[in-house]
Design a binder for these strands. Sequence first.
RNA 1: UCCUCGAUAGCUCAGCUGGUAGAGCGCCCGACUGUUAAUCGGAUGGUCACAGGUUCGAAUCCUGUUCGAGGAGCCA
Length: 432
Amino acid sequence: MSTKAKIATIGQYVDQEVLLEGWLWNKRSSGKIAFLNIRDGSGFIQGVVAKEDVPEELFALAKGLSQETSIRVTGKVRAEERSPIGYELTVTGIEVVSRTEDYPITPKEHGVDFLLDHRHLWIRSPRQRAILKIRAEVIKGMRDFFDKNGFTQVDPPILTPSSAEGTTNMFQTEYVNGENAYLSQSGQLYMEAAAMALGKVYSFGPTFRAEKSKTRKHMNEFWMIEPEMAYVEHAENMQIQEALVKHTIKHVLDNCPQELKAIQRDTAPLERVVNEKFPIITYAEAVKILQEKGHDFPYGEDFGAPHETELTNHFDLPVFVEKWPANIKAFYMQPDPEDNSVILGADLLAPEGYGEIVGGSQRIHDYELMKERYAEHGFDESYNWYLELRQYGSVPHSGFGIGLERTIAWICGIDHIRETIMIPRTLYRLYP
RNA sequence: UCCUCGAUAGCUCAGCUGGUAGAGCGCCCGACUGUUAAUCGGAUGGUCACAGGUUCGAAUCCUGUUCGAGGAGCCA
């Protein structure tokens, strides 16, 4: 009986006979030799079956295997220079667990529509597997940062009453008592309550937006990490964001070399992000840069995708854009004491055309000012609890939200965020 | 919601000013001892998205519909 092994750690078993449990990803054969490309979830390895070395039935079986047939393969691990992973398996036995007929996804090219319709199978492909592995490490790296820096994870509710920021873009459902309920589009307001209880907190969970957005940067269900910190003000908020991003990227560079290679990510720009200080510019300076570069961009508007790309190309690093005009940002953002018309908040724009990945700000902590904002926006009683946070021991506090999928898309260098999650939920696509 | 583009074999696509359907790949059969999107030979494979219209004749032209993709707005 052979030892069970995993491809990821196959190097431990050189010159030993092992058992691999997996699937046939691809096959090439000639009259006297067959190459089986085997995957087991942990990686890919090539198995070799030479006609003269094995019983006739085994060679015939190997030649007849179809793509994605599940197999238990025994064989001897061999160091092999020609292999991308450095090892090959000299196959001595194959047990077919379940034969596959007519697997739809071939190693050849396919269109987006076809692949998305077969997303449940597409994730078996080397590239998709690598992206999902990197996603897991991005999450791990972020949690690691928060846990090492005194944050406590808190989980805000997903079912919420009407939103303080309006409900037009929210998924509506009926609550048990017949009231309208909405799927959360941000846990931030609740996280502010948590910060007053635990100091430094972060949430990590799915968030839902019923926006009819149809771009490579949008999904209707995505994951967000939302830290909130008591006694932290604007400048420190940005420092923490920068440290988080650097730590996360370093974690991926250290832990996913194989996966980054599999998706052919050029890691030089990422190493630069780890080693260099992120520039901070004000919104006004950003507008000036755009105008100098020939954009007809008026002060007071939000940036579009080409503007964000222009700004980050200018620095070739993630860039904080701070002190935005208050009227284009959320009601809860703290005004700059030096200029009431702008707020103490910043967006972090990722380089290489990836755009906004973080939005953060210092929050209004003054009770009277928050009451004014409530009046201006006509908020109802369902968010009185949020106002109460300013009545009972209010302190300066800040927080931010980082979009998990946008961050992963950037780190992986892929052009559409739908590949960063197992089953993407985009406009017009609720299947599979 | 708006703008742009698209839908032909299992997949990726070609099909000209209208004349009755093509290639490559996959599957299947055969050849080949180092392939790695293997290669070579053969065979199979179609309600040309749907519904109307124009015409002797429509994959092709016109109208509408459905579905999808890219982008705008909004955001992470």
